[in-house]
Design a protein around this nucleic acid. Sequence first.
DNA 1: TTATTAATTAAACGTTTGATTAAAACTCAT
DNA 2: ATGAGTTTTAATCAAACGTTTAATTAATAA
Lengths: 225, 225
Amino acid sequence: MPQAHAMQPGRQKDSRKAILDAAERAFADFGFGGASIRAIARDAGVNQAMIHYYYQNKDLLFSAVVERRAGEINDRRNKALDALFDNAVPTLEELVEALLRPTIELGHDVERGGDAYARLIVYFNNSADERSQRVAEQNYDPIARRSIDAIMKVLPQLGRADAVRGYLFAISVALSVMAKTGRAARLSDGLCDDSNTEETVSTVVAFACAGIRSLANGAAGTRKD
Amino acid sequence: MPQAHAMQPGRQKDSRKAILDAAERAFADFGFGGASIRAIARDAGVNQAMIHYYYQNKDLLFSAVVERRAGEINDRRNKALDALFDNAVPTLEELVEALLRPTIELGHDVERGGDAYARLIVYFNNSADERSQRVAEQNYDPIARRSIDAIMKVLPQLGRADAVRGYLFAISVALSVMAKTGRAARLSDGLCDDSNTEETVSTVVAFACAGIRSLANGAAGTRKD
DNA sequence: TTATTAATTAAACGTTTGATTAAAACTCAT
DNA sequence: ATGAGTTTTAATCAAACGTTTAATTAATAA
């Protein structure tokens, strides 16, 4: 049985972390089925049996990859929500930014491998298979429910179904930026940058907030331009 | 060498179509790497060598699956754009609906297998790997460029980079509905339906248009609710 | 030092993968 | 019915797959 944390820091290489990092990249690049344990082991610089030694099987490895990052992201989101609702009711912009910023910032943190995890979120968030929905449910449903409740407090005229839609739409817009497919750059002939974190946050937040407010106004609004 | 279309209609089972249908479901459910030629052949009710006989290899099969649907969708989008800009400049709502409706309607057409293709679009649209970007570029970049130009005609104050962002954000919102992950139903305790095509179109169009307009107003808008 | 445990290794397990082959079974005009 | 062309079949290929095993090395405690 592997020990949770047996070595003193720096004394030997941390194979556990190397495996998670490589697996994160592989799952993000090739999906669950396309990623191979052998390639992950090679990329991590460890013997392939080490992966089963620490994570039992491919499914649990996938879960472990997600859990490592989700904890950090949701801690930040929860603390931001605590602060926002401490005294009064925040604006919709403040709320949406609190929800999206942690993920966007991690996605821009290339040195910590956050870009790979961002692509991995995009992957399982948009996949209907049981495994993807399991990690989404376990790691992101609690904060999602809290966020939806928060949206309804900020916009009381919004029904629950529309609050859910608004939350999911906002997430999907934010994730579309983080997929890093290169399509935006291709279609804009390099004009779209997306490397500036603050610009990305403010653009996505503005888009999402305007969209969410349109749900409150009902789909009746017919405009003239 | 396989013939393009050798049998008279109805005389014998069309293995080509059965293969495409089964492959579409497999790629949508398991991704490219997770889908297996053997399982596709079994699901299609054909010998597995037939797949190589008609489509040479897995990569070309994937391309063929996408091309079959993309042609139909983009024909509809192009015709709608022709009609909209025939006499005057349309509203943003008319334009965005013209762009999103064909995909949303196909995604709701379960009998023709449109739901599986919808999930497949979500898959390759959000994947950064070379194969996914190749099919996206070949099948959807031309209509995307035309759509972006159209957005700039409707909202002249919008720069090209923001028009690209607006288009991609709108698409991502529409696709988030079609991923059929079950997450919306889960988070809303069944309140969110998404089976009503017209309701989905009007909700997504309203959200996307409000968002696109927010890009035109600049990210400066600070509101008070 | 010795006993114990944790970490790592190379090798192999049986299975499945995408792909190829050669032969058989069709289809259909002549 | 014959023969050419198209479609389908079963069998097989080497390679890669996830996983397991037994043996070895490294670290820790007694």
